[in-house]
């Protein structure tokens, strides 16, 4: 079961990984991820506008790179059902 709000985003072996509690989703692209979430919310009976915030987990970067920049991105989107 997913709820509107925050999702943790990561990247591993060529795939974006999206997590919220027990929910896990692996996709090739962020567009695909948005689409999957849209469908999931639709199936769960949500209607109207849904705000989502993806928070990227910087642990996805190798340790040696973290000294140069500690942030990748946070992304805010609005899904309309």
């Amino acid at each position: 079961m997913i709820t509107p709000g925050e999702f943790i985003l990561s990247f591993q072996q060529g795939a974006w990984i999206c997590k919220q509690d027990a929910f896990r989703c692996y996709t090739e692209s962020l567009d695909e991820l948005d689409e999957i979430l849209l469908q999931k919310f639709k199936q769960a009976g949500y209607k109207g506008k849904i705000e989502i915030k993806y928070l990227f987990d910087f642990d996805a970067f190798p340790v040696w790179m973290r000294q140069y920049m500690p942030h990748y991105f946070n992304r805010k989107i609005t899904l309309t059902i």
Partner: peptide, 24 residues
């Protein structure tokens, strides 16, 4: 500014992290 700029730009355009890792 090198590595930090490549990570920041990749993040800004939401590129897959493999790109800034290779560039860095």
């Amino acid at each position: 500014c090198g590595v930090s700029a490549s990570i920041a730009t990749a993040g800004a355009i939401k590129a897959k992290p493999v790109i800034p890792i290779a560039v860095s």
